[in-house]
Amino acid sequence: MATELPQAPADRPAPRRLPVLQGGVTRRTTVKALGATLGLAAFARAIAPLTEWARDIPVDRFLQRHYRELTPEAMQTLLRQLEQETREQYGAEVHIEDVKPTPGVAFGYALNLSVCNGCRRCAEACHIENNHDRASQESYIRVLEMSKGSMDMERGRVDYAGPNPDPDKFYMPVQCQQCDDAPCVKVCPVEATWKESDGIVVVDYDWCIGCRYCEAACPYHARRFNWTKPQVPAAEVNPDQAYLSNRIRPQGVVEKCHFCLHRTRKGRLPACLEACPTGARVFGNLLDPDSEIRRVLADKRVYVLKEELGTRPRFFYFFDV
């Protein structure tokens, strides 16, 4: 190498001291300064899109604390701010609440596979109720068309042509199973997702860092990531919203089925159940011995998905025989 660089040591200042300290200007320091300046300018240009992006995020959102650390007063202020932001960004007047779980209530959901006809109206109702991004046609529910005689999802498909049921098939909608031992809750590095006292696994959309570890951990494909900022026309926005459920999610965070907690915690039924034309869906309080869900669990042959994984779902499947 020495032959290619005969001048290398010669064009340096003889006493090799820090140039910043000795103050001498050499060709080398000039070139370095020029290089550093050009580098900084290129750096500023390279990160320019970040400033455009940061403009849309209020400082309050950046500094916001975790859901469970907010006082009731702070939550009210926050909810009004979020309503204001929805107005500015989506042009929609919405009401966002923080609906708490009711003591003595533990929700369970059961689905009758004998009557489900695969019409996918539950998935559609979910899409509308929960203010999902319109372009991606997102929904928390996926309906599998299964081969009769097999419980193997390997032999099922979601891309079947609707809406008329195939007599040789049965249909199995899958959504969040609200596991008691939820892998997604376990793996979250920042406690942005947890199980509430009524059994619903929720996400703090303003705390999630978007690492998608929960999405990798979930055995039921129940989680969705906001790959882009959700787009919903103002006229189509469902204004009845809650902080932990269907408010329009920010870009870059994970979301999931929350059993429509903004409805169910106030005594209403989930949107997917109301939309079901066959009556396949049964929803209720597992702690109420007279509830319909308890009757199903007592009288029907019930199973849960992927029981061998030990996730202990609160979503049950049964056949009518």
Binding site: A54, I57, F62, V190, W207, C208, I209, G210, C211, R212, F225, N226, P250, Q251, G252, V253, V254
Partner: peptide, 8 residues
């Protein structure tokens, strides 16, 4: 890989 690097 983070969807929200600002929340690091």
């Amino acid at each position: 890989d983070l969807g929200r690097p600002d929340r690091f």
